[in-house]
Design a protein around this nucleic acid. Structure first.
Length: 315
DNA sequence: TAGGCCATCTGGTCCT
DNA sequence: AGGACCAGATGGCCTA
C-alpha cells in the first residue's frame, strides 16, 4: 500500500508540474511519466520481484495466460518500454509530417503561412499526379478547365478555391519575389476573387468541383524552359514526349535547389526520380501510371537564370 | 460553441 | 524481446 501511495505521489507531481509546462518536450516527459499510471491501476504492486500470483479466492479461475503481478521491477520495465515507444512514435510521426511537408512544397499551391491540411495535401497530390499524367499521355493542356477540374476533384471548397485562385493568376503572377513569404502560385487572399459558391455541391467538404461552377478563364501557362537548354532525362518506358514540355508548375521537385540552410532541399523529392517520396512502398511500383513526369536537370545557377523570380524558390 | 485539424499516448499486431 | 506500424482515444488550438 505504501508503494501505491508513493506511486500516486509521483503521478500527482507529474500532473501538477504539467500545468506549468509550456515546452512540448516537458509535456512529453510528463505524459510519459503518467503513462505508467494507467497500468498501475490495473495491477497491484508487490514488493517482491516477479512473484507469481496466487489466487486462493473462490472465484472461478479465468482462462488464458496467468497474469503476473505488477511488481515494482515489472512496472519500471514497462514504464521504460512505454517511454521509449512513445519517443519512437513521436519521431515516426515527425518523419511522416516532414514527408507531408515535402509533398506540400511540390504542390501547385504552397504557402508557409497557410498549409494545406494533411488530407487535402494527399488529395491534391493525387490529383496533381493524375492531371500531369493526363498532360503527358494525352497531350492535354494545362490551360484548360479540365486541368483545373482534375486538380480540384474531391477537394474541399476552400482548397478548391485556393487552387482555382492559383491557376487564375496567369504567368506573371506565378513568378513571385523569391524572398517573399508567399505561396508558390497563389495566396488564399487571392482566391477571394474567385471564391465560388457551388450550389449543387456539398459544402464544404469534399465535393467534386466542376469547372462550370468556377467561371474561370483558362490559366495561361507558357513553357519557360527552353528544351535545348536542359538535359532532358526521361526515366520512363513511354516514348519521349514530343509536344510542349510540361510547364514548371512546381520545379522544386525537379531541381535540387538550395537557397537557404534548409536541409530538406538537399534531398531528392517529388518527381526527381520515379516517385521516390510518394509512398510507393518497398516494391517501388508507380501508382498506376505508365509515364513519369519528365525530369529536367539544370545546374542551380542556370535555374536561377531561367527562373529568377519563380515562387518555388521561396524557402 | 461546434467542428476541423492536429499532436500525442496507447495497446494491439506483425515482423525480425 | 523489441521495433515498426496502425488505429482509436483524448485533449488542445483555431475558426466560422
Amino acid at each position: 500500500m505504501s508503494e501505491m501511495v508513493s506511486v500516486h505521489g509521483w503521478m500527482e507531481e507529474a500532473l501538477s508540474s504539467q500545468d506549468e509546462m509550456k515546452d512540448t518536450n516537458q509535456r512529453q516527459s510528463a505524459f510519459d511519466m503518467l503513462s505508467g499510471l494507467s497500468h498501475e491501476e490495473h495491477g497491484s504492486i508487490d514488493g517482491e520481484e516477479d512473484e507469481e500470483e496466487e489466487d486462493d479466492g473462490e472465484k472461478p479461475k479465468k482462462r488464458g495466460p496467468k497474469k503476473k503481478k505488477m511488481t515494482k521491477a515489472r512496472l519500471e520495465r514497462f514504464r521504460v518500454r512505454r517511454v521509449k515507444a512513445n519517443a519512437r512514435e513521436r519521431t515516426r510521426m515527425h518523419g511522416l509530417n516532414d514527408a507531408l511537408d515535402n509533398l506540400r512544397r511540390v504542390m501547385p499551391c504552397y504557402s508557409k503561412t497557410q498549409k494545406l491540411s494533411k488530407i487535402e495535401t494527399l488529395r491534391l497530390a493525387r490529383n496533381y499526379i493524375w492531371a500531369l499524367s493526363e498532360v503527358l499521355e494525352r497531350g492535354q493542356t494545362t490551360e484548360g478547365k479540365s486541368f483545373l477540374e482534375m486538380l480540384c476533384k474531391g477537394l474541399s471548397q476552400p482548397t478548391s478555391n485556393l487552387v482555382a485562385g492559383c491557376l487564375q493568376l496567369g504567368p506573371q503572377s506565378l513568378f513571385l519575389d523569391k524572398h517573399e513569404d508567399k505561396p508558390h502560385m497563389c495566396d488564399s487572399s487571392l482566391s477571394h476573387a474567385y471564391s465560388y459558391q457551388s450550389p449543387g455541391l456539398p459544402s464544404p467538404p469534399y465535393g467534386n468541383i466542376e469547372a462550370h461552377h468556377l467561371h474561370l478563364k483558362a490559366p495561361t501557362f507558357k513553357t519557360v524552359v527552353d528544351p535545348s537548354m536542359v538535359n532532358h532525362t526521361l526515366n520512363c518506358t513511354t516514348p519521349p514526349y514530343e509536344g510542349a514540355l510540361t510547364p514548371p508548375l512546381s520545379i522544386s521537385g525537379n531541381f535540387s535547389l538550395k537557397q537557404d540552410n534548409s536541409p530538406d532541399l538537399d534531398k531528392p523529392y517529388g518527381f526527381r526520380s520515379h516517385y521516390p517520396s510518394l509512398g510507393l512502398g518497398s516494391h517501388g511500383h508507380p501508382p498506376h501510371f505508365q509515364t513519369a513526369v519528365p525530369r529536367y536537370e539544370i545546374p542551380i545557377d542556370m535555374a536561377y537564370e531561367q527562373y529568377p523570380h519563380h515562387a518555388i524558390f521561396t524557402e
